[in-house]
């Protein structure tokens, strides 16, 4: 496979991207289609908790939320995965065993990525050993911004190797990459280095996921697919809080990559509060009554 020269910049039409996104936001989805999309979006959620205060109890609660999102309605689908720190992976894997819900773990000195290469590899291996089947890594933004693209490429390839059978999601932290061209370049590097998913953000800095940035990344995925026939997944993370925005993302994916990407295997939302808003909207669609967070479990 020909790896492109990353010193060459793929131009991105900033105005074009933003206007295209504005179009997606005007799409209106109603009735059965809306219910379908809401349920699909829920199945795509990576329920996330990445706080220094994540106790085993908090993680346990989140796992139950993943398996039984809304006990009052057993027909509601489960989320795609739980995303936790490596030292909580074992617990999550034990609870979720047999449920079909994936256990994702951030690793590689999340969120800054400023550890030594050895310790970062060690962390990936540890998380996989503990039972994680998806690893969310962060790239070295300092190296990328310095123009050391080979360094970034090599570190991703190294982590991919350390992952073994586990899927690798590469977090670009687009909020630190400054331009759409950089986002595109980082996406290309990650994809060609072996990422199974590319992911916008850690959720620790603002701005996190935005629709224009996601669209630029989707273009990178599309170009790669057209060139090689391989499908890479996409995960916007951070800042997606309401169902309406989630539906706009689905529209964007459908109209950019096609219906083939509308599956939890290729598209995820990294979020925590989104799940409850999706649930509230699902129940609203079913009952016709607007819902209150008072009647939904916190997760």
């Amino acid at each position: 496979m020909m790896i492109p020269d990353f010193k060459q910049t793929v131009p991105v039409d900033q105005i074009g991207v933003e206007e295209r996104v504005a179009r997606f936001r005007t799409r209106s989805i109603k009735k059965e289609s809306k219910l379908f999309a809401l349920k699909l979006a829920l199945q795509m959620v990576d329920l996330t908790t990445l706080e220094g205060m994540d106790s085993p109890g908090k993680v346990r609660q989140l796992c139950y939320k993943a398996m039984y999102p809304h006990a009052a309605d057993p027909n509601i689908p489960m989320v795609a995965a739980i995303c936790v720190y490596p030292n909580r992976v074992r617990l999550a894997a034990e609870i979720l065993k047999g449920s079909g819900i994936h256990v994702a773990s951030v690793a590689t000195s999340f969120p800054s990525g400023m550890g030594t290469l050895e310790s970062r590899i060690e962390e990936v291996k540890y998380a996989v050993d503990e039972g994680a089947d998806e690893i969310d890594m962060v790239i070295s933004r300092w190296a990328f911004l310095k123009g050391e693209y080979n360094y970034v490429f090599d570190e991703i390839a190294t982590f991919k190797e350390a992952c073994g059978p586990a899927h690798l999601k590469v977090i670009l932290e687009t909020g630190e990459l400054e331009t759409y061209e950089n986002v595109r370049k980082a996406s290309d590097i990650a994809i060609y280095a072996g990422a199974d998913f590319i992911k916008t953000s850690t959720g620790k800095i603002s701005p996190a996921a935005t629709m224009p940035v996601t669209l630029v990344m989707l273009y990178a995925i599309r170009d790669y697919y057209l060139r090689t026939g391989n499908k890479v997944g996409m995960k916007p993370a951070g800042g997606i809080r309401d169902a309406k925005t989630a539906l706009h993302y689905l529209v964007m994916v459908k109209e950019t990559l096609g219906a083939g990407w509308l599956t939890p295997d290729l598209f995820r939302f990294g979020a925590s509060s989104l799940a409850n808003d999706l649930l509230m909207q699902i129940i609203k669609q079913k009952t016709g009554q607007y819902q209150s967070p008072d009647y939904f479990s916190i997760g």
Partner: peptide, 8 residues
């Protein structure tokens, strides 16, 4: 009816 039915 929507006011009276709203759960919040």
């Amino acid at each position: 009816s929507h006011l009276a039915g709203h759960m919040d």
